[in-house]
């Protein structure tokens, strides 16, 4: 397997406060990497850096060996990365099918009929056939998030980034979204997932990376991370999800 993403010595600061410090990560094609960590540890910022939504103060981010920051073809490289956000961020003035097909039509200049056909197939796959003409405000949170996933998928990204995609959802809608992501993992897609759903992380991850205060504190396969974490910080973090020591 070849390396799809290489993050080398990444440093990100907001003003004087350092958010990410000397982060090194490689992600191979087909790998699913789950990023865990307490709120405000920098995990969302890391995804945003990889998606070029944040400028970085040090280090490099390479996708397929190309630097996303310094390359003159940043937008070409960025088309290899798709991102799904916590707050879905569908375009409120467009219906489902237009939300999905606007980017392939305008950015990739694909014919409308072809883009709509693929959109319909993808919608079927996430269980939303028949909602093509609905407006975002007519959908539930879980449905909106599935549309947002389709909107990212139709661009054929090689790397998918999920930033706490279930954090804003009601509990009963979390599952329908996570199942879509599990299905994507089965298809062999390369993904980086920031989540607070520990059971989901355990089920989907090929590798778990834990970040705290802007640095990687542990990197391990899920079996090892969840049963026998090496670092004290990881043990402490995992114990916040069980209630045994509260009794």
């Amino acid at each position: 397997m070849s390396e799809l993403l290489e993050v080398k010595h990444l440093t990100k600061r907001f003003g004087d406060s350092s958010v990410l410090e000397d982060i090194n990560i490689t992600v191979k094609k087909g790998e699913v990497v789950v990023i865990l960590g307490p709120s405000g540890c920098g995990k969302s910022t890391l995804l945003r850096c990889i998606n070029a939504l944040e400028d970085i103060q040090g280090g490099e981010i390479l996708i397929d060996g190309e630097n996303i920051v310094r390359s003159p073809k940043t937008s070409d490289i960025m088309s290899k990365v798709g991102m799904v956000f916590q707050s879905y961020d569908l375009f409120p003035h467009l219906n489902v099918i237009d939300n999905i097909t606007l980017a392939p039509r305008k950015v990739q200049k694909r014919p409308k009929a072809e883009a709509e056909e693929e959109a319909r197939e993808l919608l079927k796959r996430v269980g939303l056939s028949g909602r093509e003409k609905s407006l975002p405000r007519e959908l539930s949170g879980g449905q909106k998030q599935r549309v947002a996933i389709v909107r990212a998928l139709i661009m054929h990204p090689e790397l998918l980034l999920f930033d706490e995609v279930t954090a804003a959802l009601d509990p009963e809608m979390v599952r329908e979204v996570l199942e879509v992501i599990l299905d994507l993992a089965k298809q062999g897609r390369t993904m980086m997932i920031v989540t607070h759903e520990m059971q989901f992380a355990k089920a989907i991850a090929d590798r778990v990376i834990m970040i705290d205060s802007g640095t990687i504190v542990e990197e391990a396969p899920p079996e090892q991370f969840f049963t026998a974490p090496a670092s004290e910080r990881a043990k402490q973090f995992l114990s916040t999800f069980t209630y045994e020591n509260v009794r």
Binding site: N51, A52, L53, S75, M78, S79, V81, G82, M83, F85, S87, D89, F91, L102, A103, K106, V107, Q108, A148, R151, A152, M155
Partner: peptide
Amino acid sequence: IPKHQYESAQSLGFTPIQ
């Protein structure tokens, strides 16, 4: 208009003018 509208557009590859 929420900042996220700009960001999701950017992450889908739209140019600022688009």
